Computed example of a mutant assay.
Amino acid sequence: MTEPIKFDTKIAVLLRDDLAVWQRLNVTAFLVSGIAGTHPEVVGEPYVDADEVRYLPMFRQPVMVFEGSKEFMATAHERALGRGIEHSVFTQDLFATGNDQDNRAAVRAVRTAELDLVGIAFYGPRNAVDKTLKGAAKHH
C-alpha cells in the first residue's frame, strides 16, 4: 500500500457560510485561479487518456475547502495578513461586476478592514495556513 503524499504547502479556500451554492462554486473557481496563475509549481502535468486525448493540467495537491461566518472571514483575513500568507480575496461587491478591471476597482475602493469578504484562498506553508484557518469548519 502506498503512503499518502504529504505536502509542505497547503491550498485552502474559506467561504462565507451564507452563500448560495452557485456563489460558493463561482467564488472557489475565481479564488484558486490566482494561485495557479502565480505559482506554476503547484500545477501538475497535462492529463492524457488511453485514446491519447490531452486535457489541461490541474493542481498537483488537494484543495481544502472550509466555511465560516462573516466575522470569521475577517479574523482569517487578519491572520493571513499577520502571517504573510499569500491569498486571493472575493468580496460581495464582485457579484455585481462583470470583468477583471471592474473587479479590481471594486476591491481598490474599500479599505482592508472594511472588505465584505465572501471568499479567501490561501497558499503557503501547511502549518501557517492551518493556524490561519483554526476554528473554521470543513465545507460540507
Rank of each mutant, 00 (worst) to 15 (best):
G124N: 04
G84D: 03
A20Q: 15
V63A: 05
E41R: 08
A20S: 12
E86N: 10
E52W: 12
F30K: 09
A29P: 06
L81P: 05
E86I: 00
A36C: 01
R111M: 04
T9F: 06
P125E: 14
E86K: 12
G119K: 05
N99F: 07
N26T: 12
Q61D: 04
L56W: 09
G84W: 08
F122G: 10
K138P: 13
E67F: 06
R79T: 02
N99M: 09
Q101S: 13
L56Y: 13
R79M: 01
A74V: 10
G37D: 12
D8R: 05
A96F: 12
A50I: 11
M58R: 11
D17Y: 06
G98V: 00
Q61L: 15
S69R: 08
L81N: 13
D130V: 04
L15A: 02
N103H: 07
M1T: 14
E78I: 00
G84K: 05
S88V: 12
L15S: 01
V118S: 03
A76Q: 10
L31C: 15
A96Y: 14
D49R: 00
H87G: 03
K70F: 07
A29W: 07
R60S: 12
Q61M: 15
E67S: 02
L25T: 13
T28E: 07
Y123F: 14
R111G: 03
R24L: 01
E52T: 04
P46A: 04
K131D: 14
P125T: 00
E78A: 15
K131V: 04
F30C: 09
M64S: 13
V27A: 10
A109K: 13
V48W: 07
V32D: 01
V53S: 12
A36R: 08
A109W: 10
D8Q: 11
A29Q: 09
D8W: 02
H87M: 13
A109G: 09
A137S: 14
I11E: 09
N103R: 10
R104M: 14
H39V: 10
V42R: 01
E3G: 06
T75M: 11
D100V: 05
P125F: 03
D8F: 02
Y55F: 15
H77C: 04
V65A: 02
A12C: 10
K134Q: 15
A20W: 09
T38W: 05
R83G: 11
R104C: 09
N99S: 10
V107E: 04
T9C: 05
L81V: 06
E67N: 11
